[in-house]
Design a protein around this nucleic acid. Structure first.
Lengths: 189, 189
DNA sequence: GGGAGTAGCCTAGCTCGCCTAGGCAAACGA
DNA sequence: TCGTTTGCCTAGGCGAGCTAGGCTACTCCC
């Protein structure tokens, strides 16, 4: 019988696309096997288990997002860089809701250390260079920034802002203004 | 055969407790039935389906959190109120990780409208009264606040802050300082 | 207090997803 | 050309979600 040409890479990409279409919850080994015209059991030759697949999607998404952010940041500094980073982040989450969901799974420390998450951390710190913050304020600011981005994006997606008519784009832009303001005048102890 | 005395209320509470212990993903109709010494099929007399159960847990959690926040806010204003709100929110999420997870599920508009989510919205606006913000700044500020809280809490839980040694409690407290500062001096257009 | 009705539980049985064991054939390398 | 490996298969177990249909314990009403 002809071989379907299944590889881990193709599986991961297909899973990511499927996730964006039908949500991460509905990305199953069985559904993926159907797409490849193969029995579900056959995929366990390429994957350790279903969780393995999810982790691979998460790592793919992290790397893709890091690339986007890096491209957006090129040649920018200060508020310009902050806004570029933020928009790259939010746009990615909106274009790829399934991949974004996958990114939220809890990676074990070793996997996380070798993932593109490290690049994200570096780029975030790079932005703060324009705001002249020294430790530990820098760490706190990084955490606040990341919290704001992630919180806004995920609340926007799950409908947490739906009860007020104001366009979320406007709130987003004003939130970035506010973030820039507070990074510029970071309160001292 | 003796009746087990199952009610929707008891099921919901048991599901919430189970969620905090083993995570929302592992809250199954079957597991719940085992706890009540009953067959899984019997629970469908009380529940429409598994999703119905999750929604009930979410509504329970929303109501509980609203109660806590209301108690924390009593008699406070300004930054005092902001910090009380924030800590009530974060403490609840940490004490009840499963319930907090449940809260994130996407409620349909009608359900959301009659849920305790409305009380949350009102209380959040109440805090901002101390900061003298008028619309649409108020809405933007509410959204930023909520984003920061939710983002911080969920990143803290999924280990997003783990790569830096600084205690998250410290970053949290400084983030609240920063939030207070930016609410006090909300940037004009 | 003796039915009638209903509420609360049951068994049986289906589908689907996850995963293992063991087999067979296609591709490849020596 | 002939193993060896690689890629896919079938068979089958487990657990979760859910439906259909039946039996029993309780309630209430005459």
């Amino acid at each position: 019988m002809a071989r379907a040409g299944v590889t881990v890479e193709r599986l991961t990409v297909a899973a990511a696309e499927l996730a964006d279409e039908v949500g991460m919850r509905n990305v199953t080994v069985a559904a993926l096997a159907r797409q490849f015209g193969v029995k579900d059991a056959s995929l366990y030759f390429h994957l350790r288990n279903a969780q393995d697949l999810r982790v691979r999607v998460a790592l793919l998404a992290l790397a893709e997002l890091a690339d986007r952010v890096a491209a957006a940041l090129a040649g920018r500094a200060g508020k310009d860089a902050l806004v570029a980073f933020a928009n790259a982040y939010r746009d990615y989450a909106r274009e790829h809701p399934g991949r974004y969901d996958a990114m939220q799974i809890d990676l074990d420390p070793e996997t996380a250390a070798t993932s593109a998450g490290v690049r994200h951390a570096e780029m975030t710190r790079a932005i703060l260079r324009g705001y002249r913050l020294s430790e530990p304020d820098q760490t706190d600011a990084v955490r606040m920034m990341h919290s704001t981005f992630h919180g806004f994006v995920s609340l926007e997606r799950t409908g947490g802002f739906r009860h007020t008519p104001r366009p979320t784009d406007d709130s987003w832009s004003r939130t970035l203004d506010a973030l820039d303001a507070v990074l510029t005048h970071w309160p001292s102890r």
